[in-house]
Design a protein around this nucleic acid. Sequence first.
DNA 1: CAAGATTCCTGGTGGC
DNA 2: TGCCACCAGGAATCTT
Length: 273
Amino acid sequence: MPELPEVETVAAALRCHLPGRRVAGVAVRCEKLRRPMPVKALQNLVNEAICGVRRRAKYLLIDMNDGQTLVIHLGMSGTLRLDAAGENAERHDHLDLELDNGKILRFRDPRKFGLVMVVKPNEQGEIKELGELAPEPLSGDFTTDYFYDLSRKRTTAVKNFIMDQRRVVGVGNIYASESLFRARIRPTTAVGKLGKERCQRLVTVIKKVLAEAIATGGTTISDFYGVDGSEGAFARELQVYGRTGKPCVKCGQPIKKLTIGGRSAFYCPQCQK
DNA sequence: CAAGATTCCTGGTGGC
DNA sequence: TGCCACCAGGAATCTT
C-alpha cells in the first residue's frame, strides 16, 4: 500500500486534526512489529502537546512540543485512522493515541511490517534513526544531475535503483512500474547505461507521477485508505501495474509481468526499451 | 562495496 | 465448498 503519495495523503489529513491537541492516553495491544513497540517511550508521550505533522520519505513524523517525534512507518499493510471517542478497537489495531478531545488515532497493521519509534531529531529536524535517505523527490535536490551521477557504473536494474531508498525515496513497487512506463524505459535496463536524456525523463516523470498521485489522494489497491476510511483515486490512473495481459493504453500490445529483485514488475514490451 | 537472497507476518485470491 | 499454495504496495540483514 503505502508509498510516498499515500503517506503524504495521511500526513495532510492528520495535519488538520492533530496539531494543538494533547495526548491524553496511549494503548498498546501488540508490541511485535518490525522492531518492538517502544511501550515506555510511548507512555511518556501522555500529556505532551502535538505541534506538527511532517513526512520524510515514507515515514510519518508527529512532532511534540518537548522536541520528541513519534515516527510511524506503515510498512506494507499499515493504516492510520481517526476514530470517534469510545469506538472499540478491532483486530490488528496495535496502537491507540487518545487525544484530549476524545478522538483516537489508531494504527492498524495486519502484517506487522510497520514501525513505530519515538525519537529526538537534531536542530535541523533530521532524524538519524531513519538512516541514509535520498533527497525528497519533489524537492529541488532531486535533479537529473543527482540521478545521473549516482547511477554511473551501476549494473542494477533501473527498477531496483529507483526503489532503493538510499537513492530515491518514496517510490515503491507501484509507482516504480508506472514511472518507468511513462518514461518509456524497461524496468530491467541497467541504470548505469541510461544516458542523460533518459535520466532526465525518468526524474521528471517520477516527480510528476508522485505529485499526481498526491493530488488524487493516493492509490487504493486493496488496503490503502485515508484517515477517514476513504479510498484513493489514483488506482484508476494505473497504466501497467496489475494489468498483465491487458492491452497497453498506448499501443495495444499485452502488458508483461516479470520478477526483478524478488518483486513483480509490469511493462509494455513495445513502448519500453 | 554492490547485488541478490532471505526474512519478518497475516490475509486474500486463484486453482484444483 | 474446501483446502492450499502462492502472492502482496517495505526494508533490514545476511551472503556471495
